[in-house]
Write a protein that binds this DNA or RNA. Structure first.
Lengths: 215, 215
DNA sequence: GCACCGCGTTGACCCGGATCAAAGCTCGAA
DNA sequence: TTCGAGCTTTGATCCGGGTCAACGCGGTGC
């Protein structure tokens, strides 16, 4: 790991020590759930895989790193969502808890899991391909607007949207810098399109305007 | 469709008239194959889906459009590769033949297809997620270098790489403009990293340098 | 052979977002 | 309650790649 990366993501490195903190709470489907503190690693790139994971509560980021520390978050996973599928025997990505997060580990051989696997994988594929359009062809305002709409939709379409992740996470998801993300937040706020009741929540005030901006 | 788009992709629009030109050549697995002329549409966004497609020969581009005509190609598919899986009943993307292309249409219910479906979908997912890193975090030179290496790998790892697609297709795949793609090609050529024996082929001369450039 | 036309290349200039720098918040710990 | 560290915001400047424009080249039809 480079110095750059260490300074940028130092809080995450520290928390690796806490990984796989088994609190062993039995939850739905009779599967054991595991608690991961904020910033802890769920799995690492290159690690042998084989399990699937379902978010019980909290949020997860999936990402890759370049050798110089540049990071791209390919997906966030919120409560109820599954992640961890891979083509071969090892993980191609890192997965970390964004905040205190409960994860249910599923055996991919269980019958009900196999049946769900293909639709889940296809859902992830479509979402990744749509994100390609955002990263390849949209400007900063369009990316942020699309992000708010995506998060709103995934939280039941409410106007009040919770953002479990930091500005740095959002920047690394949208292919921007924190400064640009922050500036766009301020701009949308000053235009009255959104309100920012707190650092980690957004209220969509002018939905139509936001949708027009995301185009 | 906007004026901008019409001028930019006019050759494709013209060829829509030729779509689904059934030449009905029976090929491997006993499935009928269909010939699609260069630029013709295989399916359109919003169309009802249900079939899967396998490239017999030629090449296919999968893409989305923004309302103002900006285009993002999410994938190229070469001979042997499958495409067309979707989550719901309609296509989220456009698929077009890049050059004269033979497509085998597969019924997704066939037993041997079902077995292959999940691995294929996962392969596409990983490729899309890796492309997110390219679009989100790499500069123009890194994108083009990564593209050459990807095409080389998918053509058996040879140093001589055929590019069935135009510079515009490459630009829309890499999230760049044709001018930038062209400039990077010229730069790599003048540095002796590649040779350009013809417009549509590249020879990788300094493989290690190219790999270093792709970061 | 020649003219045309679409694709590709090259040059000049511009601008959106990155980078660098400096405050301002916020929240937990003492 | 204060302090401090890390996150966030804001400002100033820079630069990579986009935009605009002109030219080159290669294939096609006459």
């Amino acid at each position: 790991m480079t110095n750059f990366e260490q300074s940028r993501y130092s809080h995450q490195l520290g928390s690796i020590l806490l990984e796989r903190n088994e609190s062993n709470t039995p939850l739905g489907s009779g599967h054991p759930a595991t608690f991961f503190p904020a910033g802890s690693e769920i799995y690492a790139q290159g690690e042998t895989c084989g399990n699937l994971y379902q978010v019980e509560f909290g949020a997860v980021r999936i990402y890759r790193l370049l050798s110089d520390g540049r990071r791209q978050i390919s997906a966030f996973h919120l409560a109820g969502e599954m992640f961890g599928f891979e083509v071969d025997k090892s993980h191609h990505f890192f997965a970390e808890a964004i905040c205190g997060t409960g994860i249910r580990v599923l055996s991919p051989s269980a019958a009900h899991v196999v049946a769900e696997l293909l639709p889940m994988a296809l859902q992830s594929l479509v979402r990744a391909q749509e994100q390609l359009l955002v990263l390849g062809r949209q400007n900063a305002v369009e990316r942020v607007a699309a992000f708010f709409l995506e998060m709103s939709e995934r939280q039941g379409g409410l106007r009040q949207v919770e953002l479990p992740m930091s500005r740095l996470d959002i920047a690394d998801y949208l292919g921007l810098t924190i400064e640009t993300v922050s500036r766009v937040f301020s701009k949308l706020k000053s235009k009255g399109v959104i309100r920012l009741p707190s650092l980690r929540s957004v209220e969509i005030v002018k939905l139509q305007t936001l949708q027009d901006m995301a185009a």
